[in-house]
Structures are given as structure tokens and as C-alpha cells.
């Protein structure tokens, strides 16, 4: 595995029953880059990143994260590895029964056990300030709007200083203005925390704003890989349908 490769996925296959969701996918995430994985709903994007953090077990193939084979890690080693990976869920996945502060405290208390309460409070303040929601500290998730929930979820993802962040549809369900704000935040986080990120999306505007490199997944296979320019200039019907439809919406 190349030193610059943070994540390496080799010949990944995953299915549910008779339905094949991911079929022989191989890809790499390099240090410091934002890799956008595009694809229609049901193309296997979310399954791919859930396999990377081993929320789902692949049927075949190998996933190496920071040089470690994820499939061979025991529970403790997997826990250690997950401390280095932040995961932003599509739904936000904020804990309903906890306040915003407790939501941010939860991973910190478990991932960084040597931190004092003062250090934890400081880190929570910093993370909330970064997403611009310092006032929401004592609010319950039910009191937050969709965009605010996403930002708090983002704050919870970055609070434990991960070196890799996996974003699962970060802008889904948000209005265009809030989507843009989230895209800006993703770029800010990449610069400030020097993270390597994989962004799963079907939002072309988010892809345009954040991508250093793109991969298109279609029917569980990699359909196209390259930079934004290659995708924009592509005359392929599927790629065009993604990019041109979105351009039309914007005009």
C-alpha cells in the first residue's frame, strides 16, 4: 500500500440475499484529498462507506485503512481504528435523548479517555464555533432545524479530531443555501484539520464545491473516475444526465 493511500478498497463485493449491491469495486483515497463518490440512489454508495468502517461486512474483497486490513481487526483494534475515522450519517443520527452538548461529549469521553472535563468543554466549544452553532449547546435535537442538525452532526464528527472523514449524503434534504454552507464547511474542515475525506453524494453542486477527484458508481461498479473537468466534459449519457440536469436546474 502506497504511503499516500489512506484507504484502499480491493475487489469489494457486497450483496443482500440475491441482490448484488457492490460488484468488484476497487478504489483508493489519498492523503489530504476530498474524494467524491457520485451515483444514483441504490447504486451502492452508502453500502461502500459502511463496509469501510465495518458497519457492514463485505462478502468478498479487502479494505485497508491506514495500512490495516479492516476485516482482520478484533473488536478492540476496530475501536482504535474507528477513533481515526469520522462518519457523518445521512440522517445526522443525533442521539434524541441527549442535548447537543451530550451528543458531542459522547464520542469524546469514549475516544479520548485522558481528557479532563475542562478539555472536553473546550473541544465542544471549538467544534460548535466551527459550525457556527455555539448557542445550541443545551438544545435537544428535536429543537433544531434540518440544517442545524446536520451542522451539529458535523461538529460531533470533527470533535474527536479524526484523520479521515466519511460523509454520507451530507447535503441531502437541505435547501440550496444550507447545502452550500455545508459544502463550505467540508472544505474548511479539510483545510483546518488536514483530513482525507470520502463524500458520498448525488448532489452535483456539493460535488463541484468539494471534489478533488470523483468516482461515479453505477449498478455497484465504478463507471468513471477522474477530476471534475473530465466529468464536466464527458459526453457519456449517464454522466451527462447527472451534470446537465443539474445545470438546467440551476439556470
Amino acid at each position: 500500500m502506497n504511503e499516500n493511500q489512506i484507504i484502499e478498497v480491493k475487489n469489494l463485493k457486497k450483496g443482500f440475499g440475491s441482490q448484488k449491491v457492490i460488484n468488484n469495486v476497487s478504489l483508493q483515497l489519498f492523503k489530504g484529498e476530498n474524494l467524491v463518490v457520485l451515483g444514483k440512489s441504490g447504486s451502492g454508495k452508502s453500502v461502500l462507506i459502511k463496509c469501510i468502517v465495518r458497519l457492514l461486512t463485505p462478502d468478498e474483497g479487502e479494505i485497508n485503512v491506514l495500512g490495516e486490513d479492516m476485516g482482520s481487526l478484533n473488536r478492540d483494534a476496530l475501536g482504535e481504528m474507528r477513533r481515526k475515522i469520522g462518519f457523518l450519517f445521512q440522517s445526522g443520527a443525533l442521539y434524541d435523548s441527549m442535548t447537543v452538548k451530550q451528543n458531542l461529549e459522547f464520542p469524546l469521553r469514549r475516544m479520548k479517555k485522558n481528557l479532563t472535563t475542562k478539555d472536553i468543554d473546550k473541544k465542544i466549544d471549538e467544534a460548535l464555533e466551527h459550525v457556527g452553532l455555539k448557542d445550541a449547546l443545551n438544545k435537544m435535537p428535536s429543537q433544531l432545524s434540518g440544517g442545524m442538525r446536520k451542522r451539529i452532526s458535523l461538529a460531533r464528527t470533527i470533535v474527536a479530531d479524526p484523520s479521515i472523514i466519511l460523509y454520507d449524503e451530507p447535503t441531502t434534504g437541505l435547501d440550496p443555501a444550507t447545502s452550500d454552507e455545508i459544502s463550505v464547511l467540508i472544505n474548511d474542515i479539510q483545510k483546518k484539520y488536514k483530513t482525507s475525506s470520502m463524500i458520498i453524494t448525488h448532489d452535483i453542486e456539493c460535488a463541484r464545491a468539494t471534489a478533488n477527484r470523483l468516482i461515479m458508481l453505477h449498478e455497484g461498479e465504478i463507471y468513471m473516475e477522474g477530476d471534475l473537468e473530465k466529468f464536466e466534459k464527458s459526453t457519456d449519457t449517464l454522466i451527462e444526465s447527472f451534470f446537465k440536469n443539474n445545470n438546467n436546474k440551476n439556470t
Binding site: K50, V53, L55, G79, E80, R82, R83, I85, F87, F89, Q90, S91, A93, L94, Y95, D96, S97, F106, P107, R110, M111, A160
Partner: peptide, 19 residues
């Protein structure tokens, strides 16, 4: 409670938080 936590991916979020 746990069913809705499963549906809204909160249990998965705990899993990836090393909890």
C-alpha cells in the same frame, strides 16, 4: 426507543464512535 434508534442510524453512530 431502540427500534427508532436503529431506524435513524443512532446505533450505527454509537458503533462508529468506538462505543
Amino acid at each position: 426507543e431502540l427500534g427508532s434508534m436503529k431506524v435513524t442510524e443512532q446505533i450505527d453512530a454509537m458503533e462508529v464512535s468506538s462505543a
